[in-house]
Simulated scan of single mutants.
Amino acid sequence: MSYDSVCKFIAENFTADITTWLLGEPVELVRLEPSELVSSPIYADTLVALEDRNLSLHIEFQVEPKPDIPFRMLDYAVRAIRRTPEKAVRQVVVYLRRSRSPLVRQTVSERDSTRHEFQVIRIWEEPSSRFRELPGLLPFAVLSETRDRERTLQQVSRQIEDIGDRGQRGDVAASTAILAGLVLDKDLIRNVLREDVMKESVVYQDIVATAEERGRQKEGLSFASRMLKRRFGELPPEIVQKVEGLSLASLEQLGEALFDLSDRAALATWLQEHQ
């Protein structure tokens, strides 16, 4: 699970905590699917879209600054206004890792006579105390302004232990561990945060499932590559690249179809049909 995905998980499952931070009050917003804005996709990997009767809140969590962020803010705002013109649109870009790039201070999209403003939060400039007041904000504390990140992580760990709900405790612990990886050594994180607590989390379970899937994918690719080499000899790079891009299910299908493929041309046709 990526850093952006973890932030999306937090925003969607601890909405009241996130809105307390960003809006100054707990607002129970509901998740808005990006596909609900228009038929074409809209930055689904990094977009968090929440709304209620009066407000559409758009949050972009970013590890690294990107030049196209201002345009993305404008693009989303136009789509949101077109969909529900009666609602106010609030947009926040949250940068997670310290950067000296001037892009992290850019709060305006300007082109010709079009000007659009949005809010930017550089999380390393936010006081750590702000993120230790609510469970859903704890994972961000170690990224915030602090003189001793290890000590902050230890403090957060103790607060996590006090969360009564087991599932919520595990989700906060696992999210904290992932985001702390941006600024702290992974061995240190494992020494501070209890793995048995994290195992109760859907975030942790997703990470394990992804790792297992990648392991099966690697094994499937290795087996398919050996069989292809045995049947067709050394394959050209473009064929190898297509094989490496296959999903686990497609690799299994290739194994079943392998001996029905008469030559490299038939293999190339099969790969074209299963990309």
Rank of each mutant, 00 (worst) to 15 (best):
R147Y: 06
R149I: 15
Q119K: 10
F140S: 02
K87F: 05
V89K: 03
E64Q: 13
R147N: 11
T152K: 00
R115Q: 12
S113L: 14
A77E: 08
Q159D: 09
V92E: 08
A80N: 05
K87E: 06
E64I: 08
V89L: 06
A88G: 13
Q62R: 07
E110H: 11
T152N: 02
P127I: 07
V94T: 01
R147H: 09
A77T: 10
P127H: 07
T114G: 07
L74S: 05
E60A: 05
E126M: 13
Q106E: 12
L137V: 08
P65D: 10
Q155K: 09
E150Q: 11
D162R: 11
E86S: 14
Q155C: 06
R132Y: 01
Q106Y: 03
Q91N: 12
V78N: 01
P127E: 06
R149M: 12
D68C: 07
R111N: 12
R122W: 01
R97T: 13
D112T: 13
Q106N: 12
E60L: 08
A80Y: 00
R105C: 09
S157R: 01
P85F: 09
V89N: 05
L137D: 01
R79G: 04
V104H: 00
A141L: 02
D75M: 04
S99L: 10
V78K: 03
Q159E: 15
E110D: 09
Q106M: 09
R122C: 07
Q119A: 13
K87T: 06
E133L: 15
K66V: 10
S144G: 06
Q155V: 07
P67H: 07
A77C: 10
A77S: 13
L57W: 03
F131H: 06
V142F: 02
S99C: 11
P65Y: 08
K66Q: 15
E60T: 02
K66L: 11
E117N: 14
R100K: 13
T114K: 11
V93D: 01
S129E: 15
P102G: 12
E145N: 09
E86C: 07
F61R: 00
Q155H: 09
R111T: 12
L143S: 06
G164M: 12
D112Y: 15
I69T: 14
V120I: 01
R79V: 06
G167E: 14
D75L: 06
Q159H: 07
P102E: 12
T152E: 05
V156S: 00
E150K: 11
I69K: 04
P65H: 10
T107M: 08
F140I: 00
E161N: 11
E145C: 03
T146K: 01
E126R: 10
I163M: 04
V120A: 02
R90V: 13
E125K: 03
I121Y: 02
E110T: 13
R132N: 03
R111L: 13
R100L: 12
F131A: 08
V120E: 00
R105M: 09
Q106K: 15
R83Y: 05
R72P: 02
S129L: 11
G136Q: 00
I69C: 07
V108W: 08
T107F: 03
I81R: 14
R72E: 05
D68T: 12
R158Y: 02
R166T: 15
V142I: 10
T107Y: 03
R100Y: 13
V94D: 01
A88R: 14
E86Q: 14
L74W: 08
P135W: 00
S101V: 04
D112W: 14
F61L: 02
I69E: 03
T84N: 14
I69W: 01
D68P: 02
T84P: 02
V142L: 05
W124H: 14
